[in-house]
Design a protein around this nucleic acid. Structure first.
Length: 507
RNA sequence: GGUCGGUUGGCCGAGCGGUUAGGCAGAGGUCUGCAAAACCUCGUACAGCGGUUCAAAUCCGCUACCGACCUCCA
């Protein structure tokens, strides 16, 4: 296996990936809090990690991919000063049971992941399904002296932890002293001994909707706890990769590390990966309304698929959006705009068309050695090296497009197919397929080829194009152009080539 | 205010010391009955200023602008 390099947010360096247990990979990704519909920004980061998951498997690793569903304990604001629970807020607003809210948005989330062709994780644990384990971890942390109880709530003692373990702040690049100095006068620290402390178990009020019995009375777990608990439970106290959005780095992931370390003394994750944000109007796409404009800049996936959004000139299909995301590196911000999506759509169609063309190329086993052969193999090799270099999908995609050019040239006869060996052609067919469908996870949304049989549309198109062919032979341009123009109106593009006419459904 | 990151041609985006991706749009050409598609050719972009170097979009410094995190967000 060729080495894989991953940029590790913890060390801020690219490092060679070496799994804790050879051939097995534990991958944990922070999932959604199911109190609201997923927006496109969420989809981007889940798609980024879907490619990571796919590529690890493609390399031959046996991957256990755990992605949680947060359905409890996620607060808006500070726990100690009476903040609102996200689940409860929605439940009250919609007059639903919290479990109903969770279910509704979990179903919606799954549907959306499917539309984007993201593979389901191996395990998708829920916070509410792991209350016992969370209580146990709170107890462990208490037993190790890194937490304290105040009136039925348990707080993580960040200051003590930071003093005793040289771990806190490493991931987010924060110094606890700085944090203390600046936040001293700003915040109401309530029950906490220190503003940097955070709740790991929160005492329930009378009107709290989701609450469980614990040694400290009725309450519910703190937000960061579920990830610590569930990653440990399913992947062990030390596992390979933990992914999430850049915005989760602090405080969520930093606190996660603190909890794990506070409970069992070890740092949980070898490689931290953070996906950068999707931008809308130059700003992070967020469900939370902008405090100045009062408007959310988030684009909902449905709006994209329907075109029902003022930013968009038309509808875009999920695979076009996926392609659009693949054209940027996961660690870069990505700017969504109508123009960019339009460009992605063209590129996606071109790639898919070339894929079909490639599959139809035949070789007569006679070879005139040429450097085309070498160029093609080089592009294929490089595409793999690009993926090995921190999952560089845009670069790998660019290699594919150099092949698109070759493929079209072979078809049109500008290049002789026999300037490459049969092995190279077969290798290109195989890898081109693998990249598009297996690694990038794209689906073929194009309707093509008159070669397909049995299909009504294909049959009709064969018939129509036959009639058109007849009229062209008779130089009846009026009829042939009428057919072409009317089909165009129906979004079917007719393409006359040297070896006959093909067609495709335009987006 | 603190911490971190970004600024690449008309747009989106790779590259992160020398060989100057890719997609889209644009110009010219080939092909075509005409188009479209495809193919060929073209555009010399790296925020500004200074420095290091034989060599900088890439390293260092300063300035400007933008953003993320520091409250909840993927």
């Amino acid at each position: 296996m060729k080495p894989l390099y991953i940029y590790n947010s913890l060390t801020k360096k690219k490092e060679e990936f070496k799994p804790v247990n050879p051939d097995f990979v534990g991958l944990y990704v922070c999932g959604p809090t199911v109190y609201n519909d997923v927006h496109l920004g969420n989809c981007r980061s889940f798609t980024s990690f879907d490619v990571v998951y796919r590529y690890l498997m493609y390399k031959g690793y046996n991957v256990r991919y755990v992605r949680n569903i947060t359905d409890a304990g996620h607060l808006v604001g500070d726990a100690d000063i009476g903040a609102e629970d996200k689940m409860a807020k929605t439940a009250k607003a919609l007059k639903l049971e919290p479990m109903e809210v969770a279910h509704k948005y979990t179903v919606g989330f799954h549907e959306m992941m499917q539309k984007f062709n993201n593979l389901p994780p191996s395990i998708e644990p829920r916070a509410t399904g792991h209350i016992t384990e969370q209580i146990k971890m709170v107890q462990d942390i208490l037993a190790n002296g890194y937490a304290y109880e105040v009136d039925g709530s348990i707080y993580f003692d960040t200051v003590k932890f930071a003093q005793e373990k040289d771990v806190y702040g490493q991931l987010s690049g924060r110094k606890l002293d700085d944090m203390l100095a600046e936040s001293r006068e700003l915040k109401n620290q309530g029950e906490k001994r220190n503003p940097a402390d955070f709740a790991i178990w929160i005492k329930a009020e009378d009107n709290t909707l989701q609450k469980w019995d614990s040694p400290w009375g009725e309450g519910f777990p703190g937000w960061h706890l579920e990830c610590s608990v569930m990653s440990t439970k399913y992947l062990g106290s030390e596992f390979d990769i933990h992914g999430g959005g850049e915005d989760l780095k602090f405080p969520h992931h930093e606190n996660e590390i603190a909890q794990n370390c506070g409970a069992c003394g070890t740092v949980p994750v070898k490689y931290w990966m953070h996906a950068d944000m999707l931008l809308g109007n130059g700003r992070k796409m967020s469900k939370t309304p902008d405090p100045i404009t009062g408007k959310s800049n988030s684009v909902m996936p449905e709006e994209l698929f329907s075109g029902n959004n003022e930013m968009l000139s038309k509808a875009f299909s999920p695979m076009v959006v996926r392609f659009f995301m693949l054209q940027a590196h996961y660690r870069s911000t990505l700017d969504l705009s109508d123009n960019a999506l339009l460009a992605a759509e063209k590129g996606y169609m071109r790639l898919m068309e070339a894929y079909h063309t490639l599959q139809s190329l035949a070789h007569e086993k006679k070879t005139n050695p040429n450097d085309e052969d070498q160029q093609i193999n080089e592009a294929l090799n490089n595409a793999i090296l690009d993926m090995d270099d921190d999952f560089n999908t845009p670069k790998a995609l660019s290699r594919l497009f150099t092949l698109v050019n070759k493929i079209n040239s072979f078809k049109s006869g500008h290049l002789d197919i026999h300037s490459i060996s049969e092995e190279t052609l077969e290798r290109m067919k195989k890898l081109f397929h693998d990249f598009i469908f297996v690694i990038f996870g794209l689906l073929d949304e194009t309707q093509t080829s008159s070669s397909g049989s049995g299909d009504t549309l294909n049959g009709l198109m064969d018939l129509i194009l036959d009639i058109r062919k007849e009229s062209r032979v008779k130089k009846d341009w009026t009829t042939s152009d009428l057919i072409r123009d009317k089909l165009k109106e129906l979004s079917i593009q007719v393409k006359d080539g040297k070896e006959g006419t093909t067609w495709m459904v335009d987006k």
